[in-house]
Design a protein around this nucleic acid. Structure first.
Length: 519
RNA sequence: GGCGCUUUCGUCUAGCGGCUAGGACACAUGCCUCUCACGCAUGGAACACGGGUUCGAUUCCCGUAGGCGCUACCA
């Protein structure tokens, strides 16, 4: 077989916001395409008119724009294989449905959904297949005249795929190897419904992948059971020689407990399952997004890439470009991965700390503004420089108190409040204050104030040059008490740095206040 | 129920017949230190079970058990 240009696709259904698992599937498609110098296609699979959600398509496009995953063609990107929205391809599908009908690979069925429901209620494990289709109402049991008459009189119908039983169908999966299923357990899948003149997923998928010259189908494991059906469809159309190669990715699972990752898990444990915040147009419900939560897109991409794949060495931090080089579908793991949101936060911490301090300003500015505080970019950059390596306390999903690195700009506020707001009271029960504010502290602070007052260069270095020798000379260790004055607690950065940030005037003012209050 | 996929530390995983079973997150301890940290160092922690095959199985095969998925006129 001649070498075809690699072409893959990501084809979501616009039924709501893009799930994080879908993001990973798209990412793997992207990595695979780029690595092989191929194309990534963005196709919208809106064959279920009843589940269409307005805004979902735009949401998905915006999500990928934010994540930095780019498409070569598709809805909103153009291309020579369009249209890329399945609802706009009705005529194409009709042609291929006819082909299947004409070649006796499919048949028309008039059984209504209600009739089928009833059948399923009557017959245990009822399946519409070779064993039952001759007892149903379809073009195999009705005469041509009857069929024509029913259609002419406006009866709705579906087209079903006629699956020949008793054959072992092999699917050659890049990740899982040879997967074999016997065709007898497959049912005569509905390929087309006259009610909305649209095909179902299975038909549209095969036709589009063929017409769009897709070479590799990389999708979630939930599609593995229907892969044999798809193989059969390629054969029925006579496209077996250009059938794409399949790769079925393991699923993303709940962080705790059993089952696959759902929106509810995110809500419960406090992490997003969507890339962007989503406002449901019907219910008005708002679901949190990684972007709004304060994640950097590179961190999300990096974390997601490693959920089900790794480069085979110990490297974890990788740019998109590096991943393109290292990615290998055959090295993908086969079993589902529990979603570890603590590690996701760790990745974000890594990327956050790596970026220039000044880059925090926009996000940090919003956090401060929410507290009614205005700060200059220079001030924010300085605070970030001093505080970005600290940790915050938080409560995990089980209600346990934990500590973690600063992983989001919003983590900064509880740790940096004192930069902008002076202490107004001192907690007498605070261990640090109890231990470090002694009888002599007030007097020591008065002495320190005098020393500080005489310093002209109030930078951290300038203070250090004067205060350090003074502490050695007097054998005083004033830092913890000084910290109480300026911070009001046992936290914060180096004292000289903090005092420099506050300025001489504010530093002395806070010291005087503490002396007056604590005595 | 049927069919399929899957099973290495708590979690993500490396391993592709012979290793003291490696790394990362998380956890614990120590060093550093003006607080809390960061960082660095150290530590505890895993091959689901039972049969084979083999000189030798975490690795290959078969069962069992667990997990996951599919079983629609949804994708």
């Amino acid at each position: 077989m001649e070498q075809r240009k690699v072409r893959v696709r990501f084809a979501p259904s616009p039924t709501g916001p893009l799930h994080i698992g879908g993001v990973r599937t798209a990412l793997y498609n992207y990595l695979f395409a780029k690595q092989h110098g191929g194309d990534l296609i963005f196709r919208i699979e809106d064959t279920d008119s009843g589940r269409f959600v307005p805004g979902a398509e735009e949401y998905i496009i915006e999500s990928f724009r934010w994540l930095g995953i780019t498409f070569d063609e598709g809805v909103s990107f153009g291309g020579a294989h369009g249209p890329y929205r399945q609802s706009e391809r009705r005529d194409i599908y009709k042609k291929y449905v006819k082909q299947l009908l004409d070649t006796d690979k499919a048949y028309i069925a008039f059984d209504t959904p209600e009739e089928l429901d009833q059948k399923r209620a009557e017959v245990e494990n009822f399946q519409y297949d070779a064993s039952t289709r001759f007892s149903m109402r379809n073009s195999l049991t009705l005469s041509q005249e009857e069929v024509d008459a029913l259609i002419a009189s406006g009866h709705q119908y579906v087209v079903r795929f006629k699956i020949e039983p008793g054959e072992d169908v092999h699917v050659d999966d890049i990740i899982r190897g040879d997967v074999k299923i016997n065709s007898s357990i497959l049912d005569d899948k509905v390929l087309y419904k006259s009610a909305d003149e649209l095909p179902t997923y299975h038909l549209a998928n095969i036709v589009d992948d063929h017409l769009m010259e897709v070479t590799h189908v990389i999708r979630g494991e939930e599609w593995l059971p229907s892969a044999p059906l798809h193989v059969l469809l390629y054969r029925a159309f006579g496209w077996a020689d250009t059938m794409p190669r399949f790769a079925h990715l393991p699923l993303l699972l709940k962080p705790v407990g059993n089952g696959k990752l759902s929106k509810r898990d995110g809500d419960k444990l406090g992490f997003p399952v969507f890339p962007l915040e989503w406002h449901d147009p019907k219910s008005g419900e708002i679901s949190s997004g990684y972007r709004e939560k304060g994640y950097l897109p590179q961190a999300v991409v990096n974390f997601l890439a490693l959920l089900g794949w790794n480069p085979g060495n110990d490297q974890e931090m990788m740019s998109l470009e590096e991943m393109v080089k290292l990615f290998d579908l055959s090295k993908c793991s086969k079993n589902g991965a529990k979603f570890d949101y603590v590690k996701a936060a760790w990745f974000n911490h890594q990327y956050l700390v790596q970026q220039p301090d000044a880059d925090w300003a926009p996000a940090f500015g919003k956090v401060l503004a929410a507290q009614g505080i205005e700060a200059t970019d220079e001030q924010m950059t300085e605070v970030v420089r001093l505080m970005k390596t600290k940790v915050i306390e938080y409560v995990d999903g089980q209600g346990n108190k934990k500590k973690r690195n600063i992983s989001f700009a919003s983590d900064l506020w509880p740790l940096t409040r004192f930069f902008f707001v002076a202490p107004t009271e001192f907690d007498a029960e605070d261990k640090f204050i109890k231990k470090n504010w002694k009888e002599t502290s007030a007097d020591e602070m008065r002495q320190l104030m005098q020393v500080l007052e005489g310093i002209d260069d109030f930078s951290a270095e300038g203070q250090k040059a004067v205060v350090d020798p003074w502490t050695e000379q007097t054998e005083l260790r004033p830092w913890n008490a000084w910290r109480i004055c300026l911070v009001g607690a046992g936290q914060g950065p180096d004292m000289y740095e903090l005092a420099a940030f506050l300025g001489k005037e504010e530093t002395l003012r806070r010291m005087q206040f503490a002396i007056d209050t604590l005595g």
